Simulated assay, not measured.
Amino acid sequence: MDGAHGLNPDGTIAREGSLDRVAAEFAPVVEAARARIPEAFGPDRLHSAYLYGSVPRGTAVVGVSDLDVQLALHGEVTEADRAAARELEAALDRELPQIDGAGILLSGTGTLLSELERHDLGFFVACLCTPLLGPDLAAELPPYRPTSLLARETNGDLALLLPGWRAQPAGRALGRRVGRRLVRTGFTLVMPRWGGWTSDLDRQAAVFGAYHPERAEQMRLAVDAGRSPSPDPSVLRLLIGDLAPWLAAEYTAVHGAKTPR
């Protein structure tokens, strides 16, 4: 594996994360998720479960990091599934002092394996998720390379998010969501030129800044917002009002718009 650029020897993107990398402090968190997910989603609903983010990458910080989970369900996602996920998120956050929140994404297996999602949700499961329960869908997905197609389909819809962000009141949740999305989008803007993959926010911002030094300081603000949102609303206004529109326009010019869903 190319440790510098996150690639396998053949140039494909290596899978991030592993249960072996989970820090000892977070082992009880993983075991709680392993036990509670089947309780909330029985075998008729649950196909497989995955962890992603800092916990399986071994970079989680006690009391700061959240627990990120992706569930693959049989059939389409229902309102009952969403309600069960919200209840489980609240229970895990309440019962596990190691984490600051839990987030559970829900997708049907048909969607995850579809041609439309091949370079978005499919890539996410195959390369950014760590198997926790059930059959691994990565076995049914292709290898991926750091291409413009991958950039377009993963983050080429930033412009669609801006009206919603502008309409929401400033707050911690919005700041974290905006910050993380802007850093990811900035990184994938330059990913094909850099020729690799990383999900580390600091490294993503550094890679972006090497190609766009005039925006590097703003991207550092986005990293900070993605981790610990500033109480100063002017920071969020700057990110949404200046960095985000520039990034959306640049992204469309370089990679094109994401295929409509």
Results as ranks from 00 to 15, higher is better:
residue 61 V to I: 04
residue 140 E to L: 13
residue 66 D to R: 03
residue 73 L to Q: 01
residue 171 G to S: 14
residue 79 E to S: 04
residue 129 C to S: 13
residue 108 G to D: 06
residue 132 L to W: 07
residue 97 P to W: 01
residue 99 I to G: 04
residue 79 E to K: 00
residue 179 G to F: 05
residue 156 G to F: 08
residue 123 F to R: 05
residue 54 S to E: 05
residue 118 R to Y: 13
residue 149 L to K: 14
residue 111 T to A: 13
residue 50 Y to E: 01
residue 181 R to V: 06
residue 177 R to L: 13
residue 171 G to I: 06
residue 83 A to G: 03
residue 157 D to E: 13
residue 100 D to W: 03
residue 74 H to L: 02
residue 164 G to C: 11
residue 119 H to A: 13
residue 185 T to N: 05
residue 54 S to Y: 06
residue 187 F to T: 04
residue 106 L to T: 02
residue 151 A to C: 14
residue 111 T to C: 08
residue 50 Y to N: 02
residue 157 D to P: 09
residue 186 G to K: 03
residue 92 L to S: 02
residue 119 H to E: 14
residue 52 Y to D: 04
residue 111 T to M: 06
residue 103 G to P: 07
residue 167 A to G: 15
residue 81 D to S: 00
residue 155 N to I: 07
residue 93 D to G: 07
residue 95 E to L: 05
residue 101 G to P: 04
residue 55 V to M: 05
residue 136 D to Q: 09
residue 193 R to I: 10
residue 98 Q to V: 01
residue 98 Q to L: 04
residue 186 G to D: 07
residue 101 G to T: 04
residue 90 A to S: 01
residue 187 F to H: 12
residue 83 A to F: 00
residue 113 L to C: 14
residue 185 T to G: 05
residue 169 P to L: 15
residue 101 G to Y: 00
residue 190 V to F: 08
residue 138 A to T: 11
residue 50 Y to G: 02
residue 84 A to C: 02
residue 77 V to Y: 00
residue 67 L to N: 09
residue 69 V to H: 04
residue 132 L to R: 06
residue 88 L to S: 03
residue 96 L to Q: 02
residue 113 L to T: 09
residue 111 T to Y: 10
residue 151 A to K: 10
residue 158 L to P: 13
residue 192 P to D: 11
residue 139 A to P: 11
residue 138 A to G: 15
residue 147 T to D: 13
residue 152 R to N: 13
residue 108 G to A: 03
residue 189 L to V: 10
residue 80 A to W: 01
residue 166 R to N: 11
residue 66 D to C: 03
residue 121 L to W: 15
